[in-house]
Design a protein around this nucleic acid. Structure first.
Length: 119
DNA sequence: GCTTTGACCTTTA
DNA sequence: CTAAAGGCCAAAG
């Protein structure tokens, strides 16, 4: 959209970063997404690492990075937040339920961007 | 300008 | 079955 060569690049740190933020911000409250799903939407199915890395550079107060968890639903980047419990508390505040293992119920809160066909 | 690391996932041994 | 390495792209040293 628009013309990127018009010299409009102002707050755009990087298209990749913004792309991740958009997808994460697209996730409603009470829902959680996974790095793999986001990466897949970006076309970087095998490069899910960069998704998490992008979140590390993202501001947790600006981007709901707490809604992003790993494949197992475990809060891998919780230590990157203000406190180790911050991520969990925020998700609980959103209405997300946790298992006894401290993992998020992906079956209940996993936000799917599109119908993923498997097999 | 090259090397290392990074909140991961997938495949091969 | 479990364990290890590879892969991907990008930023910081």
């Amino acid at each position: 959209m628009a013309s990127p060569s018009t010299g409009n690049a102002l707050h755009k740190e990087s298209d990749f970063f913004t792309r991740v933020y958009e997808l994460v911000s697209s996730v409603p409250a009470g829902k959680v997404t996974t790095y793999g799903s986001v990466a897949e939407q970006l076309g970087l199915r095998s490069s899910a690492r960069m998704v998490g890395w992008a979140l590390s550079a993202a501001d947790t107060g600006r981007v709901p990075a707490h809604r992003v968890v790993n494949r197992f639903g475990a809060l891998t980047g919780k230590l990157h937040f203000l406190t180790a419990d911050t991520m969990r508390l925020m998700l609980e505040a959103e209405g997300v339920t946790f298992r006894d293992d401290g993992t998020v119920e992906l079956k209940l809160h996993l936000h799917q961007f599109s119908t993923r066909e498997r097999d």
